[in-house]
Simulated assay, not measured.
Amino acid sequence: MSFSTCEPRSLPSSLVKPLDDNNRIINLIAEITNQPVEIVRQNLEEEELCLGSKQIREFHDQGLLPHVWSEEMSEFYKNTDAFLYNLVVWNRNHIKLQMRDWIGKYLNREDSSCLDILCLGDGLGIDTLYLAQAGHHVTYYDVPGYTETFARRLFRDSGLVVNVVNDIEAISQEFYDVVLCLDVLEHVSEPPSFVAEIAGYLRFGGRAIINAPFHLVNENHLTHLKSNQKYSGRLDLFTKQGLHLVDGQLGWNPIVLRKIDQKAQLPSLWNLHLWGIRLVGLYIAMTTRIWANPFLWTTHNKE
């Protein structure tokens, strides 16, 4: 898909509607899940008190093995409505709001034009909607299920044009200026292969914006894979696919990598901010071997 016109707009609030409206959220989830409004309200209240509570309960009820990829876990992703609650709460958590705001400002600072952006694994579609409201041309991808249904409803109600893809084979190669992939890699069975796919979607010079808390393998994050902890803080996961660090937040939430085909295009070795990000990555990599959560201020549970 290509676009011939573009009308950039000022940045919207990172608290994307309807995240600021509990009643609308509850009614929307009730419609999607065919659950009574009061049950939905109770589930959401429990989720606000303990992020992941419904997911944890259902995971244990089904006797699934935590932190290990399996076909049963794959089916769990497709069939549970628990991620609706989990992702509503996470998307209005102050850490995620700050991350979304940083991404919007970064893209505005780096390029004032409209960008072709792929939001890969965007769940409820909140980041997709935010970037569409900011005037970009956005493609949403996630696997079919409750969260994708929720996202489609948001896009329809917004009146904005969003390209929705639920077949990963249909995503255009070497087309996107930006691929946004937040809180996905820690869930996948083969992160290097997934990163290679991300690189394949980008034009040369395009950027991948990634947040992947590989270190969060605990009772609150049962679908984060233990086998992926070894990627915590490691840039070689990305450089092997031609993606090189160009910016980001010191806490790696997120980092920005550019698809580069010539060494002459690499960022300056004298960039102190990038050295800071690299050093924090080394810290995360080393301490992940000792603690399950070495970097407390990036966790999803912080209130």
Rank of each mutant, 00 (worst) to 15 (best):
S268C: 05
L296W: 07
P191V: 12
H300N: 13
G233E: 03
G248S: 02
R289P: 02
E197N: 15
R203T: 13
T239P: 03
I210V: 15
T298P: 00
D236Q: 10
Q265M: 08
E219V: 10
R234G: 02
S189D: 13
L243R: 05
L222H: 08
F238P: 05
P254N: 05
S189K: 14
R234H: 06
Q173V: 14
Q229M: 15
L250R: 01
W270R: 13
D177R: 09
E174M: 10
V217C: 03
E197Q: 15
I198R: 11
S227T: 15
I284L: 08
H244Q: 00
R278E: 01
G248E: 02
G276H: 01
N293L: 09
W297S: 14
L216T: 10
A264L: 11
R258P: 00
W297H: 11
S172A: 15
N220D: 11
L272A: 11
C181M: 12
W270D: 14
R234N: 09
V256G: 00
F238T: 07
G205C: 09
Q262A: 07
R258S: 12
V179P: 07
P192T: 10
V246F: 00
V188G: 12
H221K: 10
H244G: 01
Q265V: 01
W252T: 02
L245Y: 02
A196Q: 14
E186H: 14
L279A: 10
G233H: 03
E186M: 14
E174S: 15
V184N: 03
L296C: 00
N228C: 10
L225N: 10
G200F: 05
A208K: 09
P191M: 11
L279E: 01
P254I: 05
F175C: 07
L237F: 04
L274P: 05
Q249T: 06
T288D: 07
P192Q: 08
L216I: 07
L243V: 04
Y201I: 03
D247M: 00
P213E: 09
R203S: 08
V179E: 05
W252Q: 06
Q229A: 13
L225W: 07
Y201C: 09
W270M: 13
D261L: 08
L269I: 11
L274Y: 03
E169N: 15
K226V: 02
Q262S: 10
G206H: 08
T223W: 05
D261Y: 04
S268V: 01
Q249H: 00
L202I: 09
